[in-house]
Design a protein around this nucleic acid. Sequence first.
DNA 1: GAGTGGTCTAGACCACTGT
DNA 2: CAGTGGTCTAGACCACTCC
Lengths: 274, 274
Amino acid sequence: MPKRSAPRYQLLANELSRLILDGTLPPGSILPSESELSEQHGISRASVRAAIRELVTAGMVDVSQGRGAFVRIPRAKVRRHPTSRYVWEKEQAGKADSERQETSITDYDAGLQHDDVEDVAIYDTVPADVDLATRFQVPPGTRLLRRRYEHRPHLEDAPLSLITSYQPWDQAARNPDLLDASKEPWPGGTIHQLSTIGIEVMRFIDEVTARPPTIDEAGKLNLPDGTSVFLIRKVAVDADNNVVDITDAVLPGDRTELIYEIDLPAWATPPLQP
Amino acid sequence: MPKRSAPRYQLLANELSRLILDGTLPPGSILPSESELSEQHGISRASVRAAIRELVTAGMVDVSQGRGAFVRIPRAKVRRHPTSRYVWEKEQAGKADSERQETSITDYDAGLQHDDVEDVAIYDTVPADVDLATRFQVPPGTRLLRRRYEHRPHLEDAPLSLITSYQPWDQAARNPDLLDASKEPWPGGTIHQLSTIGIEVMRFIDEVTARPPTIDEAGKLNLPDGTSVFLIRKVAVDADNNVVDITDAVLPGDRTELIYEIDLPAWATPPLQP
DNA sequence: GAGTGGTCTAGACCACTGT
DNA sequence: CAGTGGTCTAGACCACTCC
């Protein structure tokens, strides 16, 4: 026997979804108002709203009070290349100041930090929680230097990333400039700044997860409903396998594409053609 | 002057959220029923439902018809190490069958494919769309071999990943076994299977994005509301920089952690201690 | 001021889960 | 069967946008 019919709001959501996907309602176009849909389909306004909520959650529609509901225009993705970016950043940091290119780290489009304008840098110290203490191999409660940034591509835009970086306070204190937001060694970047205290970063480990945004993050990153955030925990390791820096980056899920490149060692003997 | 008060459903959502975060409502515990909350707070049931929907979208609560609303128990994350996995897989694939370890690719916990049970393998051919055609550098419409899999950690569980892999049909046809799900060369894995047609994979490029799940994906991956999926496009490149395989993997955002390791070349001269 | 979406109510019936 | 969440209605008022 046939399935019981789907709920009315679901039927309407499906119908609108179809109209969007087949181009009848192109990106940027406005949906009929809630009262129109309610009349046309003979269902209550609450049901219409439930249908539209489905579409918002699915990322197909944006709604704006007093104006209407619009088919979402996909936002351009920012492509980030952590692999090549890290290699490039270390190369740059290794050069003497004199021969370092004019192009700052800011101009290299691929990385996680210093994309363009950086504002709201807050420095403070926090006691290590269990998680961070384990990573740094220090007792819980050890004093950590915490630095927070927001990065935005242009002055008017919403920030593209929220960055929080941690390192043991005792380590950072070997160069007092690292403790002061206004004296931070230029150019920025974990690798160069750690080099000022005699540390060479040999490896980064990026741990990538996704989760729904907190209220705060949704506001700051200007996230539409239904989108989630990337959380990248970037662990910097030195030649002795000590963790020397941990940086958490929160990125908007709908505007970010992460590209990792993995080179594989060549085989001693190439495979035979069949 | 003070802000206008937040809507009632928002106030209730905040209050419940606080109770969850401070442990008064521990993970797994049941929330008061909608009618109870409605009475206790003197608001309509619709407002209570709006409050609970907020919590569901934030990933804090799961609701189940006929039973109640429960504080969500965070699901264990599956850690995937594409970097080391790819290197290991190529190493294994390079060994002669005789010296290959008993441990199959299945047992290596880190990768994207062949985690455990693999079912629903569907093979077919599709014409290349513009995107895929560009990647493979073939004319749009060129015939591609498409292989689809679902992977699940145990027979009863929901699948952990939905995999779709593409390669030019002409390329795959050099080994007819690749065209037949029942004869697919063992062990699995892109690298080994491509080696049977004389191709050595030299590089993988992982392109990682996140988006809301389609209805289909939400069902198959058993995703709670509000969670999104990872989409990993894994591009395999040979020594001549030809793209030889493209694999799209859809992973549940709430149960996946991706770990990429980036080794950096050493500096010629180590940094000086200050 | 007209029209939009946002909040809210009171009440009804249905579908599912447990006992 | 009682109790839960899921769907739905009809109507009201508010807040915002745009003309």
